[in-house]
Amino acid sequence: MGIRPTYGTLQRFRRRTRDLHVPGTVDGVAFPVSACWRLNGGGAVPFHVESIPDDGVDWVHDYKASPAELRCRDQGDFTVEFSSDHPDLVAGDNRLAIEMRDADGRSVACTIRFDWDPVPVPLPLDISDLSGVRSVQDVGQVVAGAFDVDPVSGVIRSRAPVHPDSLLVLGGAHASQEATYNVRFLDFTGVKWLGPSDFFVGFEDKDPPIGIKTGWSSAGMAALNPRGEARSFISWGDHSGTRREWVVVTDPPARFPVERRRLYSVRHQVLFAEGTDTVRFRIWPADEPEPDTWLCQEDDAGIDPAFPRHRSASFGLFQHSGMPIEWSNIRVVAL
């Protein structure tokens, strides 16, 4: 019986997106579990611990019937999340206390000590040299799923089995920007979306909130699948179930067949101009010339102006389920 934070009890965070996310799992307990967290001795805040097991869910074609939507793959999964402007959060050393009580009345607790740097990550951002990186938290914030750095190979790799909607945010929140990188898709088994990247805005709460935010807000996602389809997405609160939820998607998809283990180059942009959010990207084999045209391009000009819009975003690495992907030579610049 124990609480296992994905990245241990000593962690570090820097201001990259609007919330801090602390994923983990609890095992050896009787479900359902009630849980709360406290930051630096502050008030108790309840949060969601997944009680529904993954009994062979086909994540490629289906979802688990869970109130947490795509945020928790396995029974016992959780993510503590709180604002980067939380009044109890201080620069430097912080303590996050997690307390749980299971269906049999047994209690378990865990304290995570973490360092917080409130200075936003600036642009330009160069993560092309990973040789001296010891932890993925040295270069980014894991929002969902798990990622690792392989300094010998010089890559960031998603951890198997890859969770649905896995995300590692690397950059801080900025306006118009461009990311370039290399990517290698190792295996297509169980993959719904190969990613590979997103200009992430944040998660939105359900109404009423359930203790984990489920609505994905993206200023511009680049997405491929093993069937040779490519799409761009822009969204506010996707899977939140609120009346303000909206999604823009490339439909029909563009065509781009990808090959296992081949190295590709990607150029991915988000542009904010005159009240419109535009995303575009192209991908090509790394040993071939860069194409002149964009593979996918979408904007939110057709969304009701009364609905929420985006004015900044944070670059991150994205994948939905399946086997690991490798990213390298990552650079992000302002436009």
Rank of each mutant, 00 (worst) to 15 (best):
E229Y: 06
S128C: 09
L295H: 06
K64H: 04
A306I: 06
T25I: 11
R244M: 03
L271C: 15
D117L: 04
G145I: 04
D55S: 00
T293Y: 14
D115F: 07
H174Y: 04
C110P: 09
S51G: 13
L186C: 11
F318M: 10
S135L: 13
A30Q: 09
P291H: 14
Q177N: 11
R262T: 06
N40W: 04
I283G: 10
V90G: 02
D93V: 13
S34A: 13
M100Q: 07
D165Y: 08
F203V: 07
P253Y: 01
H61N: 10
S321M: 09
A219W: 13
A230Y: 05
L224G: 03
H21E: 12
V332E: 03
F281S: 14
R261W: 03
I98P: 00
V45M: 08
H310S: 15
L130G: 08
D77W: 02
V249L: 08
K206C: 15
T6K: 12
F307L: 15
S153T: 05
I127Q: 15
P209L: 09
V29I: 15
G2L: 12
R261I: 02
R244W: 13
C296V: 03
V247P: 03
S218N: 09
D138G: 07
E204V: 11
F13Y: 15
A313I: 07
